[in-house]
């Protein structure tokens, strides 16, 4: 491993849209790859999280596995950033908080339109859903937030540049969006 700063990313209860936006930095990914070491992230498929300077979290916490991953990121990353609407306020997945979990499962797997062979999945390998989806700041300390659904690539780039340079991240107003 090099002495370059380590960056890890993960998608909890998100859609990977924030990761897609991250990739929209286009060829600057080469510049970034030369400046950092990518640890656990869907981009490398590394599963083991090491000590990192920065952890970018997409998505809220909807399952026991989400919670475990989030706590691991908090324990091993010096700076944790909530990236995107879902990490910050639950976003679209939090719409399920309008209903009881059992009613959601019943609708999707038992009684919904077009359900064939109705059964609620109970394979032990499947992460157990939590009763309510929660934004990550309710469960761990979050150092910075970057809103957007997804945040624009330029905003993600700016945030990383600021953090890697040891500056307080400042998001220019034209890149601040909640949708």
């Amino acid at each position: 491993m090099s002495d370059r700063p380590c960056v890890a990313t993960t998608s909890l209860a998100g859609c990977f849209g924030c990761h897609m936006s991250f990739l929209d930095i286009d060829e600057r990914i080469v510049e970034l790859a030369e400046a950092i070491h990518l640890d656990r992230t869907p981009l490398t498929d590394i599963k083991q999280l090491h000590h990192c300077r920065i952890g970018l979290i997409e998505g809220g916490v909807g399952s026991e596995e989400n919670l475990q991953v989030l706590q691991e990121f908090r324990a091993r990353c010096e700076i944790v950033v909530a990236v995107g609407a879902c990490a910050i306020n639950g976003g679209i997945p939090a719409l399920r908080n309008h209903f009881e979990l059992r009613d959601c499962l019943r609708e999707v797997y038992l009684e919904g339109m077009g359900v064939d062979d109705p059964q609620i999945p109970d394979d032990p390998e499947l992460p157990r859903p939590l009763p309510r989806l929660r934004p990550i700041h309710e469960l761990v300390k979050v150092d910075y937030s970057l809103p957007g659904c997804p945040p624009p690539a330029e905003a993600i780039w700016k945030l990383l540049q600021d953090l890697l340079a040891g500056r307080e991240p400042v998001i220019p107003s034209e890149l601040l969006r909640y949708d």
């Binding site: 306020n89 908080n97 934004p135 309710e138 979050v142 937030s145 809103p147 601040l176």
Partner: peptide, 16 residues
């Protein structure tokens, strides 16, 4: 108003 006040997040628990 959130944009104008540069609100990035809310530190409070969301009530849903």
């Amino acid at each position: 108003m959130g944009y104008w006040l540069k609100m990035l997040d809310s530190p409070f628990p969301y009530l849903f």
